[in-house]
């Protein structure tokens, strides 16, 4: 399997690209399990639901230079749901931003790999997130910066679905729609579970697409674990609106005893469960 980043001008078919991403995603999920197993801390449910979105962006869609993370023309990526840092770190390490050996220090005393990402310590991190509702405003600012400086980099923000209950997202959504930021894409990891319960039983989000359309966004809805569908949505022709991608996902995707169970928001698998999880992931 090649984890090299896709090259500009890659003429592989959508199916071939998706097949490659699926292989990478399987390895990333194993990396996440191992990363969390060390400190016995993390957010495995959300890590697994967001994995395919991150892999599609970092290993195909985005224009990046892991060896030159401050490159001014890089596409910007902001993980607003910063608690899913184990997924982000696994992706960044695999993409070459830093050594995968570092993952074994996840949340260890004085490690650069904090439970929530820190851009001043970890290459590839654009913004220190963790408190919810912060990523989209920052992404809107980065997208406006590109328009003012006439730069063609794009900005991608991944949001949790429960996170959309934060009002700051709606301030940012309103402004991005007003500015017609066609260089901005927000992706919601729509796993339908927040920390304590289902989103629709807590503070319902639906009709989610209609809300974002009303705020001036172009809305796509796809299976967030279908790499071909994600690729197609990211590559759909742009119109003069920001893009909102509802990626329907399963929290804990990939492991039978974790998938779609609310208690696995930040529960940590036992050593036996780690082995079982890796066995299931390897069989896919």
């Amino acid at each position: 399997m090649s984890t090299a980043l896709a090259q500009p001008g890659d003429t592989s078919s959508l199916e071939a690209r998706a097949a490659r991403l699926k292989e990478i995603a399987a390895d990333i999920r194993v990396s996440i399990v191992n990363t969390i197993a060390g400190p016995r801390m993390g957010h495995i449910g959300g890590d697994f639901s967001v994995t395919d979105i991150l892999v599609t962006l970092f290993f195909d869609i985005m224009r990046t230079r892991p060896a030159d993370p401050e490159w001014a023309e890089r596409d910007r990526f902001i993980l607003s749901k910063g608690h899913c840092s184990a997924a982000l770190y696994s992706v960044l390490a695999t993409a070459g931003y830093f050594s995968p050996d570092l993952l074994s220090t996840f949340m260890a005393p004085l490690s650069v790999l904090n439970g929530h990402p820190n851009r001043r310590k970890v290459k590839g991190v654009e913004a220190n997130t963790g408190p919810l509702g912060h990523g989209l405003p920052i992404g809107v600012g980065a997208a406006i910066a590109a328009t003012i400086s006439k730069s063609d980099y794009r900005t991608f923000v991944v949001l949790g679905d429960g996170e959309l209950q934060e009002g700051s997202n709606w301030e940012a959504a309103m402004f991005a729609g007003h500015r017609k930021l066609s260089n901005l894409t927000a992706i919601v990891d729509r796993n339908r579970l927040q920390q304590g319960a289902r989103t629709e039983d807590t503070n319902s989000l639906e009709p989610l697409g209609d809300k974002w359309r009303a705020f001036g966004w172009e809305v796509h809805e796809v299976d967030g674990h279908d790499h071909a569908a994600l690729l197609a949505a990211f590559e759909a022709p742009r119109i003069d609106k920001p893009r909102f991608l509802i990626a329907n996902t399963r929290k804990g995707k990939g492991v039978s005893f974790i998938e779609d169970r609310v208690e696995w928001h930040h529960k940590v698998p036992s050593p036996e469960q780690v082995l079982q999880a890796i066995e299931e992931l390897r069989a896919q």
């Binding site: 001014a72 910007r76 654009e126 913004a127 509702g133 912060h134 989209l136 405003p137 920052i138 992404g139 809107v140 600012g141 980065a142 997208a143 406006i144 910066a145 590109a146 003012i148 400086s149 730069s151 900005t155 009002g167 700051s168 301030e171 940012a172 309103m174 402004f175 007003h178």
Partner: peptide, 27 residues
């Protein structure tokens, strides 16, 4: 082009300024 008025939305205003700094500006 260099005055960004976000409207009455201070949380977004500060987040947007962080993003502008990320993009090389001094807000």
């Amino acid at each position: 082009e260099r005055l960004i008025n976000v409207g009455i939305a201070e949380q977004n205003m500060v987040g947007v300024s962080a993003g502008l700094a990320n993009g090389g500006f001094v807000p």
